[in-house]
């Protein structure tokens, strides 16, 4: 397991000379001089992957808070379960409707049924589709935009 000093050494292997020059020698006593801003950033980054502390600190709660927490989590779990059940039921209903419609179409018009259930190859979602966000750009949609000719 790598500790942060080894990690820092690793960084010195790739950082530019003027940065590595800014790094002071590591002393055990309390640091009196200030670290260079670059060096402290490196130490911050490397300390994240170091194995200095394997077990995180346990949350300290009094008995009352623990009971409160358990109660909230139980309610939250129920809520999640209901949410999932609702979602599954909706999907299931949609699936059953699709099956029903296909069966009906097969009886009514076999040719249309063949066309409707043929496997569509190379199906893609629209490349203009975006994952919705709460913070859209100032100009969320470019209405004049058309894809460039190839």
């Amino acid at each position: 397991m790598m500790n942060w000093k080894q990690g820092l050494r690793a960084f010195q292997a790739v950082v530019r000379p003027h940065i590595s020059a800014a790094q002071p020698t590591l002393v055990r006593a309390k640091r009196t001089t200030k670290l260079a801003p670059g060096a402290s950033r490196v130490i911050n980054m490397v300390s994240v992957i170091s194995a200095r502390k394997k077990q995180p600190r346990r949350l300290k709660m009094c008995k009352e808070d623990q009971v409160r927490h358990q109660m909230i989590m139980a309610a939250w779990k129920l809520h999640l379960r209901d949410e999932k059940a609702e979602r599954t039921n909706k999907l299931k209903a949609q699936y059953e409707k699709i099956t029903e419609a296909c069966d009906e179409l097969q009886k009514l018009d076999p040719a249309l049924y063949e066309a409707a259930t043929a496997r569509e190859k190379g199906k893609r979602f629209s490349p203009e589709m975006r994952i919705p966000t709460d913070t859209p750009p100032r100009q969320p949609w470019q209405f004049d935009w058309s894809p460039p000719d190839k």
Binding site: M2, Q6, G7, A13, V14, M45, V46, I49
Partner: peptide, 23 residues
């Protein structure tokens, strides 16, 4: 040639994902 590059790659993965990588 330079074993420290592997550690630098590890830090890079940690930086771009925010999770702890394994060597």
């Amino acid at each position: 040639m330079n074993h420290d590059l592997a550690a630098a790659a590890k830090v890079m993965l940690q930086q771009i994902t925010g999770e702890k990588p394994t060597s």
